[in-house]
Amino acid sequence: MTGAPSGRTSWSWRPRCGTAAQTRPASPCTAPPRERGYVVRGYLADRDALDGTLQQVTDLVRAQGSDLTGEPSWDESGQPHVLFRMEVDELPGLKGWVDGVEALPGTEILSVGRSLEIIKDVGDAREVDAKHGVSRLQGTHALSNMRLATESLVSPIASHPFWARPFPDVCIVHNGQLTNYFTWRRHLEREGYRFMSENDSELIAVWNSVQMEAGASLGESLSASQEQLDGVFTYLLGTLDGIGMAKDRWAIKPLAVVDEPDGIAIATEEQALRSLYRDEVSIINYDGPLMTEIWRRDAQREGAAA
């Protein structure tokens, strides 16, 4: 159930479109967040069912009085499972639509957002990039995670980052383990939220989104999580506006940050940052208890170490 005690979590901001000449299919460089409509990333367990499933998903979009705004695309790896991408117009009943799509056999929505796109697969970073053209994506901020599966499935859908179903544009990567996971999961399920995995990290994303929907700011939600969520965690919460970070009172999970004029890079371990910065560079370690930080897309920093 855990989010990988030895998992590696990182986020980097790159001011440019990826240049790596990767194989098809093209993941288009995304523009700034859409004014309307969503980009949807999905998972289907059985590639043979792709045509029928995409048609059913499209029907569900149209049942919302909406429509696709572009041709769907998918990976052509030939593996049994397939990841697909769609662009759709406004979805007035987004939650119900997500429920409907995920009721289709073997189908799971990986993300919905004005700009959020979650791509996750089995294999190392190079394999996943080669398959899905991750490095071609353009944007202001990104989260990534290499997961060592410990207490839940080895599968793309059990991997990080998790989408905060059904909240658009919110996702999480998390290093640690919650000890009051089942208590909170039962609580949130009674309120109608659904979880696609047995992974505690998924819960943290939904938990924060519920706080923010109720009016909490990102910072308030992060601080509240330190009180309400029990266990060990350092997590990065991705939102449309940037990235929030919180760590628990024991602060056993590390976080190392480089904040340079050419961007900000965050990782669990300093050695990951050395792949970007081989020469000496100032490393900021967030190693105190109950720390929070917010890195905003517009670069206005606010943070607090309580």
Partner: peptide, 13 residues
């Protein structure tokens, strides 16, 4: 008993 210089340690574990 030699002196060793390690270059490019790159924060490896």
């Amino acid at each position: 008993g030699h002196r060793v210089e390690v270059v490019e340690p790159l924060s490896r574990h």
